[in-house]
Design a binder for these strands. Structure first.
Lengths: 213, 213, 213, 213
DNA sequence: AATGAATGAGCTTTCATTCAT
DNA sequence: GATGAATGAAAGCTCATTCAT
């Protein structure tokens, strides 16, 4: 059944997140999924194919995290919008990181996953671009500074969410959204200083305009 | 001999970086180090102890990367100083990442390494603090904006170097310092907008007054 | 259906001949026969029963290869008759050998097949006896030497066809009837020297005397 | 140690002969050799390499079976010499056949062994040629008929030994030298009629006539 | 009759670790 | 200190067989 297939995929992801790649043995996967070991090979050519599926599904979900962000343009405060968005990104990264990092242990696996991510465009690119579009829109509304490159700022913001999740995972801290929120707020705060409209800058341009007219 | 001991440590690190944790077998280590497999167990209780040593040495080196940064305070342009510093950090991270990330594959190993890093304070903390001290010093000199938290900005800058290296490693790109430099410059550019002193007319005049007095 | 049953048997034989016993898995049989794996177990108790059927059918066909040979007694030249017969035997053996030899890999299978062949008299015995009868008949016609044991000569001739086929199969040579024919001719040539009537002068005169009386 | 290496090779050959390829598992080999399963892979790259070694050693021994035959030229009776030689050949074949035939079960194995046998000239060629040389020498002494091709006759004789051993193995008969000797004698008898100098035939008939008159 | 998902025993192979030399 | 033969547990994977549909 397709039911068991998905069952196995989920069990594998759970193992990757909780016990790590080394414990993600076919034996453990079968036990976790409550099926016989042989069934894995009925649904997947080999273990690599199973892992690919896990990565693909998880990355596919992550890819579209920010699709609703454009609806927020102009609403609430910019930093509130960003905080909320980065918190979701943090959460998503917290789940993805054990998978992504485990892959470094096995170069062959790493290469095949690189290939899949390139072919299916599963990287962070889409999310970052969505974020950049949002920033550009706010820029047009004058809600953030005009002299900032939206894509560059979006990269930085996305990195923040990733880095916080990585730090927590690496140091074995549970996903703690309220603490993460604090860190996110702090980082956004620093970046937003760059993004905030420069009153002084405006004044400068105003002065220039006046001098031209 | 201590010579062979260090030999084995270096061989292990080389394997971790080039072939990944999965290929870091005792057989491969012995071959790479040019010693017998059994010798490993004369110098190390077990494989975990060897990896601990590898991580410890590498992190120890990384920890002190920025120790010469304070000497640059007030010299050259701030963004030049930061670019140079982040490039070194990128380079260091590019080497460390395969080691650090591989560890995610084995939770037991991860936990024991977490412990070591906490006990010996081997994390990025020191480097970030050094960077923050530098920023604070430049802040005092008025070379960067006064309304920025140096520690928060330092974290962001450090993160940039780490994330660029991670991205390159994950996507299987060779360490390319000239391209990395571009990315670093762009990110610093965006952050520096936040850090740049706000040169309003009033501030300028204030500065002039102070320098006169 | 009986159709599917025979289908499976033929698919199994094809696999045995082309890929060997090791590749004769239930999965491959099902694929080759174009049926579901489970269907095999509706028609046969287990894999052994299926193989028995394959061997039985193939050996049954082989057994009666020479049934038309007696019609040739006294016609054409003896060596021509033998060459033709051995070529057919070679061809038959070329097909049988991969099946028969594979069986050596599994002693249980070998034993059960030995039993079947004894019970149903599926060995080369009948063919050899047919050949011996032919030789005896030709001997009575004076077309081959009188001091030869027909059964012994028949065994030798049969052996030639078998061994040539075995040699070709073992060395991975395609069944090449024209080359086989050469080898057969050579071997028959040597054996026939034994079989040829000793036409010394005295014997000739003796024969003439007897025919006159 | 080399001791254990040879140990494993012999255990493998014993298993091949007594239980067949299917039972020649690494587990059984290790048990039969009285070593740990892992040790097999210390001495051999994989199972195939081990089997190659087994085949090579066994065939190498077989290759030189007849090396002392040339010393018998002109001594004793020809059929006595041949009987003795074929008996040794039978014995050798009886051991080799389970190995050779098992190989048909696994095409990959078969191909790799074909390659080895070609490269190292491990086939029956040498033995057959030695036998042919002997026959040619006896031919020159006038002890066998002059109109026979020695190589062709040698092939036939060699086949006899092989076929008898194969029949016995296939039908699960123990190696029975005394019975084999009977069969060999019978076959040689028939072939020797071809090989016997024809002059004796003439003389015999002359003698018979005289005794009749 | 026919399917193919599901099982689990058993295979080959790898690898950290030990130990006699 | 140094070697490498030896161990045995555990890995990924295959396959004959069963069974619900």
């Amino acid at each position: 059944m397709n039911e068991n297939r998905q069952n196995i995929i989920c069990a594998t992801e759970r193992l990757l997140q909780t016990k790590g790649l080394a414990q993600m043995t076919t034996r453990n996967i079968a036990r976790e999924a409550g099926v016989a070991e042989g069934l894995i090979y009925h649904h997947f050519k080999d273990k690599a194919e199973l892992i690919h599926e896990v990565v693909e599904q998880r990355m596919h979900v992550a890819k579209n995290i920010l699709e609703k962000l454009p609806l927020q343009v102009g609403l609430r405060k910019v930093n509130e919008n960003l905080e909320e968005v980065l918190q979701v990104a943090y959460d998503s990264h917290y789940q993805i990181i054990p998978i992504i990092c485990s892959v470094f242990a096995d170069h062959q696996l790493q290469i095949s996953i690189q290939k899949i991510m390139k072919e299916r465009e599963l990287g962070p690119q889409l999310a970052i671009e969505t974020l950049a579009l949002y920033l550009a829109a706010e820029q047009r509304l004058g809600r953030i500074a005009g002299d900032v490159l939206p894509l560059s700022a979006a990269k930085l913001l996305w990195m923040v969410a990733f880095q916080l999740a990585l730090d927590d995972q690496f140091m074995g801290r549970k996903s703690d959204l309220s603490r993460a929120r604090e860190d996110i707020r702090e980082a956004i705060g620093t970046i937003l200083i760059a993004l905030e409209p420069r009153l002084t800058v405006k004044q400068k341009t105003n002065l220039k305009k006046r001098s031209k007219s």
